[in-house]
């Protein structure tokens, strides 16, 4: 297992408020990692930094085997490097069909002229069908995604992430708004993905995290306070303190 993403000594503050404070984090390929922490621990800001939405004040973010910096790259460039992100609130193109949503996500050249002359090949078609089956939306392919249920939108967004075929997946609260069966299915899917990808899951739901059965990183006030198996971190006094209050 080699290191795919390495975040080192990163800090960022908004108007004097330190959202991320000297945070260091690394994940290899393949690996499944859960990031937990109370509200305001900096989980979303951490993802913003990795995906280029927020520039840190200090620190480094290194990517890939060559370990080159992501800090100078735009969001789109970082995405093309192979980092996919699912937002906390499902963001899909509600005005477009499920098929079109998946089609624009497929891993293909991203330039405007390639897009103009793009044709849906047999391979594309097959891949879309395959992903649709995976996320349980095979019979919804030609419906507008805006009329899907909240859980289905979550699925669709995960499907779009799959279509991108990234090396690292950042998944923010994938299980929100899902039934128990759907959660289990999601957890299984993420575990399966983690055999060949690096997957970072941010989640509040401890049951879901337990089911993921992976290494856990605990964030608090912008720093990592513990790392290890769920049982291990839950035994650490500081973590209990943070979660239960003093």
């Amino acid at each position: 297992m080699s290191t795919l993403l390495e975040v080192n000594g990163v800090s960022v503050s908004f108007d004097g408020f330190k959202a991320i404070n000297n945070l260091s984090f690394a994940i290899g390929l393949p690996e499944l990692r859960a990031v937990i922490g109370p509200n305001g621990a900096g989980k979303t800001t951490f993802m913003d930094i990795v995906t280029g939405k927020t520039r840190p004040d200090v620190g480094t973010v290194r990517w890939g085997e060559m370990g080159h910096s992501l800090l100078t790259k735009s969001e789109a460039q970082i995405a093309r490097e192979g980092i996919g992100r699912k937002f906390q609130r499902p963001t899909v193109f509600e005005d477009q069909s499920v098929r079109d949503n998946l089609r624009v996500s497929l891993k293909k050249p991203r330039g405007p002229f390639s897009a103009m002359f793009d044709r849906v090949t047999e391979a594309d078609h097959a891949r879309i069908e395959e992903i649709a089956a995976e996320i349980g939306l095979s019979d919804q392919l030609d419906r507008k995604s805006g009329i899907l249920s909240h859980g289905q939108k979550q699925w669709l967004e995960i499907g779009m992430l799959l279509a991108q075929d990234p090396r690292l997946l950042l998944v923010d609260e994938p299980a929100a708004g899902m039934t128990t069966d759907e959660r289990n299915h999601t957890a299984d899917l993420l575990k399966r993905l983690a055999r060949s990808h690096a997957v970072v899951v941010v989640e509040h739901d401890m049951e879901f995290v337990r089911r993921l059965d992976c290494r856990v990183t605990v964030l608090h006030e912008g720093s990592v306070i513990a790392e290890g198996s769920l049982e291990h971190v839950m035994g650490i006094e500081r973590v209990i303190e943070v979660y239960l209050g003093r």
Binding site: F93, V104, A115, M116, F117, D118, Q164
Partner: peptide, 25 residues
Amino acid sequence: SGKFGNILRGIRDDELRVRFLGYPV
């Protein structure tokens, strides 16, 4: 009508999502 149009409408409705899909918005 093609993929280009899908992306344009994507930019209209959710610019951030398009960006995180790797498109140079």
